[in-house]
Design a protein around this nucleic acid. Structure first.
Length: 218
DNA sequence: GCCCAGGTGGGTA
DNA sequence: TACCCACATGGG
């Protein structure tokens, strides 16, 4: 069977089971998590989320009007904390202006319009915007990340140097526009890459091995 | 001690 | 467009 996004997903679901993402109790928490996890391992972001929650700061109401300098020391564990504190403050401000402070209201916006709005917020780039649109608002936008590039270029289905939007279109043209599918797909890729692609010097026991023309190559 | 992690934005040529 | 770099903690 030739590899394709559909075939890859069926294989991942069969061999690994549903991934069960995104950790977050509310839409707001998911959005803050999407900022805190940028270029960071999830456990570090989770620790920062817990630090906010333990101070009862994990809500729009609690963070509204708070200065980045006050947020930064609380989220130290996720790295680049001064930067991310400014980004959190900018997102809180955006939510206030556009959605009355209610992250849940993003679900009623037209998906591409929401994406466009999010990209105007400083510190929210394409991946973070799509994570928010998909995992917080339930819109069917495919999330592309470094793992997606790595896995699918190893499979020989992409070159790997395509733009973010090119890759997003690549997947969205080949998959049904289904938020729960995109949700689990991204989670599967991250889980797969963590468990297999990081192995050095070669991939180990990868469930996609027989689909991969570059077996054993980093 | 070194490399990497579920990116983004600014600078330079 | 294509690189380079800063941002910074924590785990392997």
């Amino acid at each position: 069977m030739a590899a394709s996004p559909r075939v890859v997903y069926r294989r991942l679901l069969r061999t690994r089971g549903p991934a069960g993402w995104w950790p977050g109790r509310t839409a707001f928490e998911v959005c803050i998590g999407a900022i805190l996890v940028q270029n960071t391992a999830w456990p570090n972001a989770a620790r920062a989320l817990r630090a906010l929650a333990s101070r009862r700061l994990l809500s729009h109401r609690a963070l509204r009007g708070r200065r980045a300098e006050a947020i930064a020391p609380i989220i130290r564990s996720c790295g680049t904390f001064n930067l991310k504190a400014r980004r959190v403050a900018a997102f809180v401000d955006f939510l206030e202006r556009r959605y009355g402070g209610r992250a849940e209201a993003m679900a009623r916006q037209e998906p591409m319009e929401l994406r466009r709005q999010l990209l105007e917020v400083p510190g929210i780039g394409p991946e973070t915007a799509d994570c928010m649109a998909l995992y917080a608002a339930g819109h069917p936008l495919f999330v592309v990340d470094a793992y997606t590039r790595r896995v699918f270029s190893r499979l020989g289905l992409i070159r790997g140097d395509e733009s973010y939007e090119e890759l997003q279109r690549f997947f969205m043209r080949r998959l049904p526009a289904d938020a729960s599918l995109f949700n689990d797909y991204h989670a599967q890729i991250v889980g797969l890459a963590k468990d297999h692609c990081r192995a050095r010097p070669v991939c180990t026991a990868c469930p996609l091995d027989d689909l991969c023309p570059k077996q054993g190559i980093q």
